[in-house]
Design a binder for these strands. Sequence first.
DNA 1: ATGTTTGCAAATAGTTTGCATCCAG
DNA 2: CTGGATGCAAACTATTTGCAAACAT
Lengths: 151, 151
Amino acid sequence: MQLKSSAEQREAFHTSCRRHGLRITPQREVIYDVLCHSGTHPTAEEMHRLIRKRYPSMSLDTVNRALLTFARIGLAEVVEGYGSPRRFDANLAMHHHVHCLQCGMILDFSDPTYDALEIPASLKKQFTILGHKVVLTGICRECREKENRKR
Amino acid sequence: MQLKSSAEQREAFHTSCRRHGLRITPQREVIYDVLCHSGTHPTAEEMHRLIRKRYPSMSLDTVNRALLTFARIGLAEVVEGYGSPRRFDANLAMHHHVHCLQCGMILDFSDPTYDALEIPASLKKQFTILGHKVVLTGICRECREKENRKR
DNA sequence: ATGTTTGCAAATAGTTTGCATCCAG
DNA sequence: CTGGATGCAAACTATTTGCAAACAT
């Protein structure tokens, strides 16, 4: 996904790194650039494969660490998926989720407005839509209080 | 999450197993029961820990296999999370996702109606909500066509 | 100069596979 | 009885950690 012009992209990257006291290394620049131009929400492994074409000496660890660092400083996001450790749910009725970003807890809630959401017609052409769910992200009360106590 | 009365639960379990030609084993019964009564979207490991109290000889593999089987026959769902392999995204603007359940592909889309979704007031008390996203699930065109060709 | 970042290697976590034994049907 | 299910062990995949060398500041 090309989100920003190259110039804007570089700008965002440098600003963010400087603000967090991180060094600007050629590896990180390449990793961020490839991530910005990729439309597929790549895994570290996929990124590494792509990057190796341009930068054969880069190690997978560096890619992994850079991506985690980007997520930590808000330059990128970790996207929801169905990987491990897998979480299971026997509640098959329509419901929605709140994720605590701190402790990983997932809470169910129901909301008739959310249940009734319309699926955009343009998507129905490309996908056979089987379900939908609203995912809220935030910090749960417990983690919030833990955080407050620390300060 | 207690979803169903024990009787309904047993009923759903037996019907589903029979329909799919699966044997009803004591292990599977316990695993399904624990899953139904758990409100936390447990991982296989967490389930195993819980189950061991009641059924000390059960192996983690059995729990894992049973949960995957339940998901396959529609008795349970795998819930979205941020586990491995982690997928990253540099698109920080509000957007939404369609997941292909077959190939795992994640597509971005935008939708102003979805962007403007109100957060239920009751949740705001318990959570500091930082973001929201609509996640659609289905089968992408490619996978649908692949499936059609097979038949 | 100096302290962060890198690349490699080893450790770990979660999952999957192979296989002999067991048991539901 | 018999094939599917279980439990164990080994293989595998993704990730994390420890550490010496490299390099951004």
